[in-house]
Each structure stands twice: as C-alpha cells, then as structure tokens.
Amino acid sequence: MTEQPRPAAPTGLIPSLVGIRGYLALIVVVVHLAPFAVALVPATEAFFLPFWHHGYVVLDLFFVLSGFVISSGYARTFARWPGWPTFGKFLWARLSRFYPVHLAVLAVMVAAVLGSRAVGREIPHGGDLTWDLLRQVTLTSGWGGADALTWNGPVWSLSAEWACYLVLPVLLPLVQRLRTPTAAVLGYVVACAIPLVCYSFLGFDDGTITYGMPLPRAFGAFLAGCALYQLAAVGSRIPQWLGRVTGPVVAVAVLAIVVAASLGYPSMLALPVVGLVVPALAQRHGLVDRFLSTRVSLLGGEYSVALFLVHVPWILAASLVVNPRTFPGPAWGVVGILLLVAGAFVLAWLAYVVVERPAQRWMRRLVRRAPAAPARPIEERVEERVEAAPNGRTDTSP
C-alpha cells in the first residue's frame, strides 16, 4: 500500500480570509453603534443588545486570523532570528497597513475635540493631550494599565496586535517546535487557555479585557492562530476535514457563542471553537468560502481597517447632533441610525482612498522587501486581483 501524501500548509493568497475581515469589522461597528441605536429607537433593543454584549468575540477571531496569516507569510523568515534589517522591514510592512490612517484619524479627532471645546461642547472620550495621546501615537494604549478607553478606543486592539508583532521572532520559533499534529493541537488548546484562565481570575469585564489587561487576550488568540497554521504545516488532516464542513463549522462557532451567553458565561469561552473557522476557510472549499471570496466581500476586507478606525470617532462626534432630542420618535430615530451607518462607510471609503492606500504605496517604496518574506503581507495583495478579475472572483495563486 502506498503512503498517502501529507497535506500541505496553505500558501499564497486566501481570498476568504481577506473577505471575512470586512464582515468582522461590520460586526464591530454594530457593537459600538448599539447603545446609540437603542437610545434613538428603543424598539431595536432586541436586535442590538446581543451584539452589544457578545459581539466582542469577533476581535478574538481577528487575533486568531492575524496569527494564522502572519505565520503563513513569515514562517520561514522567522524560523530563526532573521537579523534586524529583515525584522525592521517586517514591522514597517505591518505599520503601512494601519498606522498612516490611524494617525490621520487621530489628528482629525484631536482637532475636533479642541474645536468642540472652543464652542462649549465636548466629544465623549476625548482623552487628555498628554499621556493618553502619547499612548495612542506610540501604539501602547492596548498594553494595559489604562483607566479607560480614550481618543480612538478601538485602537487598543491594533496596539495589542502590534505587541505581538514585536515579539514575533520569539513566538514563531516556539510554535514551530510543535512538530507533530498532537503537539500542535495541544499548542492550540494551551494558547486558547491563556486568556480564558487569566480572565477567570482577573475578570471578563469589558474594562479588563480592553484597557486594563488586554495583552493575555491578544497574545493567546494570536498564538492560537500560529498553532493552527502549524497544525497544517506538520501535515495534520484536521484542517482538511474542517474545510469540508466550513458552513457547519461557522454555524457551530455562532452556536457556541449563543450557548455561552444564554447560560450566563462569558462569550470568550467560545474562543476554542470560534478559532476553528480560520483553518476551515483556509482550505478554500464550500459555499462560505465562495461567498467570502466574491468581489464585494474582498472589497469589504480591503476597507476593513479604515472602517475599524473611523467608525467610533464618527459616531461619537455625530452623536452631538444625532441623538433622541434632535431625532425624536421611531421614524426620525431610524433616520438617525441610517445616518450614523452611512457616515461611517463614507468616511471609511475616504480614509482608504485619500490616506491608507497612497500611504501604503509610499511606505513600501521606501524599503526593499525582506529576502524570505512576501513583498507584502498576504492579505494586502488582494486589490489588484479584485480589479483584474472580470467575474468578481480572484485568483488564489500567490
């Protein structure tokens, strides 16, 4: 009997892992829109409250996704210490993805806060112009020890992910020591346990997991994504099995969140199940993969960073005008909700076109690519494929 070939780890562009980012960012928007929407139209409470209280798990899935994608693109580069020039180019490539638009949004927000104070108004969560602002600029607002989310609150997650990048030369070699499927599965379980065990003692409250002590959450989920990639790299057939039932895997992940919430447990306890969505999609099979690989989904993935960064400042600023006093009653309240949503999308598009994309190109031109790394992170090479694909589908080759 001939031995069956071992399955290979996924390589190249994985469109569905780009497309899913847009929908995850949309859920984050719904989470942050929820209190304003319920205030405008109390009848929407049944729809928005579940997202408000339990939708935060999509950020954990973002961390898993990031760990998986970074591993797929840089596993060989960081199998051993690559040297400071290569590491610097890696960090520069990651910064080019989000830092220019982050600085642009932050600058606009500072100007808006100062302007509103000049006319006797106050945009919520403005923060101070010293320590809080410095933590935002230096991407350390998500490293813990804060008393509240200030300025652009969602940046805490990008800051925590940045911390994972800074120690990647240590993390990836450790994960690559998991050289058997059993070891990789155990590594995934241990990685998922890091935040779950830590917060069992510290508390799963929103303050602890976002600004008080968010790094266990980020490092655990990021490492879980790295371990899932390693599971494929060592030839396990588990990812292939998951890929054959991607739709049910997604349904079970949602069900795990619902069950945890209905039993009164923190939704983050569903992380070990939710994380399995990533390797399932990486197999590029099934209806869910095809849906997330459509042109619309891929464009949503491209705009996801901009949407993630602009929506909270926009909602906070717009709430000075769009509120129950100026938009009274259900009919006007619905108009107010639609204005908040439409404004977030328009600003995300502007931020992408005016700041994010031009800044990415400029930053990449400043340095040559690292010898063993992709010219750009995998999820950032989709735009040209989208524009070139006449049927809305993209090539999956690297």
Rank of each mutant, 00 (worst) to 15 (best):
F78T: 07
F90P: 00
K89A: 14
V190M: 05
D132S: 12
P195F: 07
T77V: 06
T77N: 04
A118V: 00
N152R: 12
V167Y: 08
L171D: 08
F98T: 09
R177A: 13
G115S: 12
R76V: 00
L149A: 09
H102T: 08
Y165T: 00
Q176V: 01
T180N: 05
V167E: 11
G142E: 10
D128H: 05
S157R: 06
A193G: 10
A112L: 13
P100V: 06
A111I: 12
A163R: 04
P195L: 08
G127C: 13
C192L: 06
G83L: 04
V197E: 08
V108P: 00
A191I: 00
L171C: 01
R135G: 08
T150A: 11
L168W: 14
S159L: 03
Y165G: 00
A111D: 09
I123E: 03
A75W: 13
V189R: 05
G83M: 02
A107L: 10
P154I: 05
P169N: 04
V175W: 03
T77M: 04
C164E: 05
S159C: 11
P154S: 11
G73P: 01
V108Y: 07
A111E: 08
R97D: 02
C198V: 12
G145W: 10
A118Y: 14
S72R: 15
S157P: 09
Y165H: 02
G187S: 00
A79L: 08
L186D: 00
A79E: 14
Q136N: 15
G153W: 05
Y188L: 03
V69A: 11
C192S: 13
P181D: 09
R97H: 05
P124M: 09
A148F: 11
L134V: 14
W131H: 12
V167I: 14
G73V: 09
L166E: 10
I70R: 03
Q176G: 07
L186S: 03
